[in-house]
């Protein structure tokens, strides 16, 4: 399995997915850093209430787009995990070796996963450092939030690898894009539903989270970071499309982990059974 993990890392490097994503990350962090700095410079002009709304939302926006970039990396690096090998013809030599098919697939998954966790962790810490450096915001529960921020791309990775065992690379990419869109849009609709007390929108959000739970994970992260104590301002700090009006339950977290494990198990099963 170590052979496959190393192979996967080298492939990520050579295909330049990591490099392109790194450029995106740097560009984003530079722009984000400038924006937060400007906000901090002019925040003296804001009254305390406005400041307590705007700064957390800037922070959660940073996390939102940060998770988008890491999700981009998760999907595009693993899009052809199996289908790419089939389309290139490299699968024939690979599968005929003494390595178990499960080891091949899990080696690839772990290779992508380890890279994604490092990437996500550094990104999360960078955003946190920018916000803490320029503002007075001191988010709590960062350990738990960091873990969840790293879990997000792994969920997408698991589904992407599963899709790769079933679909050609391009079709898998379209599917993953659609699933991510469902999660994002459903999540925003759910926030509006909670804010305006519209049950149907809340349910749409819940269903979309069951289909693809990454947005629910994001809402959990934001809720942990920006709601250290229940205060009258709590609802205000969570306003807007990047906040979390209601904390996703711990059962959502349990469901997400089970979802990830089932996706990986199905991917292994499909790869084991497939004829090449």
């Amino acid at each position: 399995m170590l052979t496959m993990i190393l192979y996967t890392w080298r492939e990520m490097l050579h295909r330049r997915v990591l490099a392109v994503t790194l450029l995106m990350v740097v560009a984003f962090l530079v722009l984000y850093g400038l924006a937060v700095r400007q906000l901090a410079l002019h925040s003296g002009d804001l009254d305390p209430l406005a400041k307590s709304i705007v700064i957390p939302q800037i922070f959660s926006a940073g996390l939102y787009f940060g998770s988008f970039i890491v999700s981009f990396l998760a999907v595009f690096s693993a899009l052809g995990a199996v289908s790419g090998e089939v389309e290139n013809g490299t699968v024939y030599g690979l599968v005929a070796t003494p390595v178990r098919r499960a080891e091949i697939l899990l080696g690839k998954f772990l290779g992508y996963a380890l890279a994604l966790v490092v990437y996500a962790a550094l990104f999360f810490l960078a955003i946190g450092a920018i916000v803490r450096g320029y503002t007075s915001l001191a988010p709590g529960g960062q350990g738990g939030a960091l873990a969840l921020f790293c879990l997000q791309p792994l969920v997408l990775l698991a589904v992407t690898v599963l899709g790769s065992t079933l679909l050609p690379t391009l079709a898998n990419g379209i599917l993953m894009f659609m699933l991510y869109a469902v999660a994002m849009v459903g999540g925003m609709l759910e926030q509006i539903g909670w804010l305006l007390h519209v049950q149907s929108l809340q349910q749409i959000g819940i269903i979309s989270s069951l289909i693809m739970p990454v947005d629910a994970l994001y809402r959990k992260i934001v809720y942990i970071l920006l709601t250290p104590t229940a205060t009258p301002l709590q609802a205000l700090t969570q306003m807007g499309p990047f906040g979390a009006q209601v904390e996703p339950s711990v059962w959502m977290l349990v469901y997400t982990i089970a979802y990830l494990l089932v996706a990986v198990a199905l991917a292994v099963r499909n790869f084991n059974r497939r004829d090449f």
């Binding site: 192979y7 080298r10 492939e11 050579h14 295909r15 290139n88 013809g89 490299t90 024939y92 030599g93 005929a96």
Partner: peptide, 12 residues
């Protein structure tokens, strides 16, 4: 095994 379709990672 030498496959009929002999392909190896081209970046290696």
């Amino acid at each position: 095994f030498l496959p009929e379709l002999f392909r190896y990672p081209d970046w290696m």
